[in-house]
C-alpha cells in the first residue's frame, strides 16, 4: 500500500506554459490531481505563504525570481523550510546541481525528462507510491 497521500497539494513553477502543462499531465497520469501553477519564483512564494503545499516542483531559469532564489527563500522560511522541493531544469552543469544541492534541493531533474524519471524522483522524495 502506498504511503504517499495522492491528494497532496503540489505547486509547479515554470515560466513556460508548455512545461507547466506537461508536468501537470504527467502528475495526473501518476495519480496526483491537486496541482497549482506559478510562472516565477515570487508568484510561487506568495502561493506557498497563502496556502499549504506538500511539494514544490520548480524550474530554475525564470524572471524575476529564479527557482534557486525560490529554493533559498523556502529554506530560510521557518514554516516552509522542510517542504520537499524538486528542481526540473535545463541547467545541466555539475556546478548547477551542486549549488542546488547545497541550497537544499530535494532532487533535481534535467530537461528534457520522461515520466519514468519524474516518477522515480517523486518516489525518492515522497516515498514509494
Amino acid at each position: 500500500m502506498s504511503s504517499v497521500d495522492m491528494g497532496m497539494q503540489i505547486l509547479i513553477v515554470d515560466d513556460y506554459k508548455t512545461m507547466l502543462r506537461i508536468i501537470r499531465n504527467l502528475l495526473k497520469q501518476l495519480g496526483f490531481n491537486n496541482v497549482d501553477e506559478a510562472t516565477d519564483g515570487s508568484a510561487a512564494l506568495q502561493k506557498l505563504r497563502d496556502k499549504e503545499y506538500h511539494l514544490v516542483i520548480s524550474d530554475w531559469n525564470m524572471e524575476p525570481m529564479s527557482g534557486m532564489q525560490l529554493l533559498t527563500e523556502v529554506r530560510a522560511d521557518t514554516k516552509l523550510k522542510d517542504l520537499p522541493f524538486i528542481m526540473i531544469t535545463a541547467e545541466s552543469k555539475t556546478e548547477n546541481v551542486i549549488a542546488a544541492k547545497q541550497a537544499g534541493v530535494s532532487n533535481y531533474i534535467v530537461k528534457p525528462f520522461n515520466a519514468a524519471t519524474l516518477k522515480t524522483k517523486l518516489a525518492a522524495v515522497l516515498g514509494n507510491f
Binding site: 508548455t18 512545461m19 499531465n25 504527467l26 535545463a90 528534457p112 520522461n114
Partner: peptide
Amino acid sequence: VSAAVTSIFEACGFQDITGQ
C-alpha cells in the same frame, strides 16, 4: 493508449528546450 499519450507529453518538452 495511455503509454502513447505519455510519450507525446514527454516529446512536447521540445518546445520548452527550443524556446530557451
